[in-house]
C-alpha cells in the first residue's frame, strides 16, 4: 500500500482495516496526530486527506491508499508556523495540548474554505473537536485571528 504523508511517499504493509491513525503513529512514527477515542467523538486524530479534514481513526488504510495526507507536522513547524499555529501561540490556546493538533487541523480546514467565519460557523465546524481542558473560548478567538492573518487583514 502506498501513502503520501506530508509530501513523503511511504510503502506500507498493513491490514486493510488498520485505521490511518495507527498507520501514522505506530508504523510511520508520525505522532503529532493523537489517539483520543477511536470512534470519531473527540477529533484529536484529525488530518487532511486530499484536502478534507478527517478523523484518521475512522479511515481504513485501504481507503487512504493513494491519497495525499497532511498531518500537523506537515501544516507548519516550530520554525515556520502556519497562520493557524501562529494564532494558537499568540492566544496561548493550549493547556494540556493533547487535542490541539486536531483542533488546529480542523481550524485550518475551516479557514481554507471560509477564511472569515462567523461565530456560528466556527461553532458548527469546531464542535466535533473535544477539548477536556475547555480551551474553547481561546480556540474561537484564535480561529478569528488566524482567519485575519490568512486574509492578509
Amino acid at each position: 500500500m502506498r501513502l503520501t504523508v506530508n509530501r513523503v511517499q511511504y510503502d506500507i504493509d498493513v491490514e486493510p482495516d488498520m485505521p490511518l491513525l495507527w498507520v501514522l503513529r505506530d508504523e510511520l512514527g508520525i505522532t503529532g496526530t493523537k489517539y483520543g477515542c477511536g470512534i470519531a467523538q473527540c477529533g484529536a486524530c484529525t488530518v487532511h486527506l486530499d484536502g478534507l479534514a478527517v478523523r484518521s481513526c475512522q479511515i481504513p488504510a485501504q481507503a487512504a491508499e493513494g491519497s495525499k495526507i497532511v498531518t500537523i507536522e506537515g501544516l507548519g513547524t516550530p520554525e515556520a508556523l502556519h497562520a493557524v499555529q501562529q494564532a494558537w501561540v499568540e492566544h496561548q490556546v493550549a493547556q494540556c495540548g493533547y487535542c490541539q493538533s486536531g483542533q488546529i487541523m480542523q481550524a485550518a480546514s475551516l479557514l481554507d474554505t471560509n477564511p472569515d467565519p462567523t461565530d456560528e460557523e466556527i461553532d458548527r465546524v469546531m464542535s466535533g473537536n473535544l477539548c477536556r481542558c475547555g480551551t474553547y473560548p481561546r480556540i474561537r478567538a484564535a480561529v478569528k485571528t488566524a482567519g485575519a492573518k490568512l486574509r492578509g487583514a
Binding site: G32, T71, I72
Partner: peptide, 27 residues
C-alpha cells in the same frame, strides 16, 4: 509571558508519554 510548552503543543512536536518510542519497544 509565553508558556514554555506552547509552540510544541501547537505544532504536534510535544512528546507525551503515549508518543514515546524507546528502542526495541513492544506495544
Amino acid at each position: 509571558t509565553l508558556r514554555v510548552d506552547m509552540v510544541a503543543k501547537s505544532t504536534g512536536t510535544m512528546t507525551y508519554g503515549i508518543d514515546l518510542d524507546v528502542e526495541d519497544m513492544v506495544h
